[in-house]
Amino acid sequence: MTVFQAIFLVVAVVTLGGAVMVVTVRNLIHAALWLILSLFGVAVMYGLLSAPFFTVIQVVIYIGAIAILMIFAIMLTRRVAQEPGSSVNKGWWMAGLMSLVLFTALVWMFSTWSGFQTTLPQLPEGIDTIKVLGTALVSPDGYVIPFEIASVLLLAALIGAVVVAWERKT
């Protein structure tokens, strides 16, 4: 087993363990913290896939923004977060079954695919992926329109979130 594999396995176990805790733990703040651990594991995965840019924006966006926003929302709805009773709904066994079935189906489908065992290719020499990504995102031959649409979407979401959550003074 190479060092790379060892790192992968450790990170995968931590991430998946964290994810399981996210969906099972009762205390929502704890769930959010487990989510952060899990997302951090995913960030490391990006690092393993030689996408350092994604590692960093994963931390910035998911941990720095999304997770903290969630913790805020949990605290703002605190009464609900501490409600007694089950933390899962009545159909949880069906949900679990479906997830399991989906997992088996996905793995089975992957395993029948010829590219399943693709080994890690060498990255092209002398290419700065961040530079390439940046150029692709803003060049007309690349993804400038999707990128702009995504930014408009973000702006719209921003305004929409403010409008929706605005407490109207009656």
Binding site: I29, I36, P52, V56, V59, I63, G64, D128, I130
Partner: peptide
């Protein structure tokens, strides 16, 4: 090659520490 973003990222984890302590 993403050091500046890294600084921002780490800064947001610092925020998390404060929330955790406060909560």
């Amino acid at each position: 090659n993403v050091a500046v973003l890294y600084i921002v990222a780490i800064g947001s984890i610092g925020t998390l520490a404060i929330i955790m302590a406060g909560w």
